[in-house]
Design a protein around this nucleic acid. Structure first.
Lengths: 192, 192
DNA sequence: ACCAAAATGGAACAAGCGTTCCAAATTGAG
DNA sequence: CTCAATTTGGAACGCTTGTTCCATTTTGGT
């Protein structure tokens, strides 16, 4: 009964994601979006709402995808240390590839969190989620005898995520893949 | 022969620093600066140049101050581990206080480095400088027998700085001082 | 074939941006 | 006292921003 969309809603959202991730919210104008996504202003507004809504839709998509990958890696039946090594490597590769855009969540935390309550809430929830996943993997490692019982899985998880934040910043601003991998390997010493 | 400035050039620069540090470059308008610094547009232009020049002057001031504090702490005659603990604590306190603005260099790295060559160069130089200071303190620790010879001071320094980057992001977006201190303590385990 | 629904591109809008111009006020040196 | 220098606030500029309006085109179901 209606004319079908001439563009793939999800695919366009992905390209918006790439733009916002690389340039940030303020540095990406709506005109940029129209030009680079190849979709008319009005269609963008009708489909996604205003610029802020589009941004948050892209961010949400990014986070879901990130959590999926994270869960997939954590669920593998490998030793903890190897698992986190793989996790760090995947993160470094993803943050350095394609012009080193870094982590979109980190970029949002720095650019928007201080003056946007929604971003702050999204960030807090995501951080809690990731740290929770890390911690439960570490607890599992303790039960399996892979990790000393003296360690605090929650504190360790937080530290590991803080390391991820730092590596994401370095990836975006410096983009030195090998150095990041070396740092990640050192960070994993806390598991010994 | 001329009318003296009605404002203290350095003091105004400090207030500009606080604004840029808290809000970022794009999110701080020139009108904001005029209003919050209490200095007329024209005086700002005459004294500091345009917005970008003012920003970079503020950033440079921030970095000098940071490096001074860093050198002061590293030059103390305390054990390495205690020195770096103090260093992390000072950094956390500075990044969480006054509305948790985080580290201005980190903020610039995330917001500006990807599309501003000057910021990128400043960041690269600063990172090299800080990592160098860390590394030489670690080498000194090795010579003093405080740190195992098997460790690589340069890699360790890089890791410690990456940790600082991560803590700065968390400070700005989440502002949980105690968690950060706990993370910092865990990071220091790599010195053992 | 026709109509309702939805997409499209272009024009238009008000607001905010960084920046410059200008006239008036204020100062210190001679 | 006067003059040159330099301050200051306000008006103005041109540009970009995010957003909306509108007329047109294109589609699918009846």
């Amino acid at each position: 009964m209606t004319r079908p969309k001439e563009f793939d809603e999800a695919e366009v959202l992905d390209r918006a994601l790439d733009l916002f991730r690389a340039r940030g919210f303020k540095h990406t104008s709506f005109a940029d979006l129209v030009k680079e996504l190849g979709v008319s202003r009005q269609s963008l507004y009708d489909t996604y709402g205003d610029k802020q809504a589009l941004y948050h839709a892209a961010l949400a998509r990014y986070l879901v995808r990130n959590l999926d990958r994270l869960r997939r890696i954590l669920d593998e039946a490998a030793p903890v240390r190897q698992t986190f090594a793989e996790l760090f490597d995947a993160m470094i590769e993803g943050n350095c590839a394609n012009g080193a855009p870094g982590c979109m969540m980190v970029n949002a935390m720095v650019e928007l969190a201080p003056h946007d309550a929604e971003t702050r809430a999204v960030a807090a929830r995501h951080v809690r989620e990731v740290e929770g996943l890390y911690a439960s993997r570490l607890s599992r490692a303790q039960r399996a005898g892979e990790l000393a019982r003296t360690k605090d899985p929650v504190a360790l998880a937080r530290f590991l995520y803080h390391t991820v934040l730092g590596l994401s910043v370095a990836a975006r601003a410096l983009g030195d893949r090998d150095n990041l991998r070396q740092s990640a390997r050192i960070a994993l010493q806390v598991l010994d």
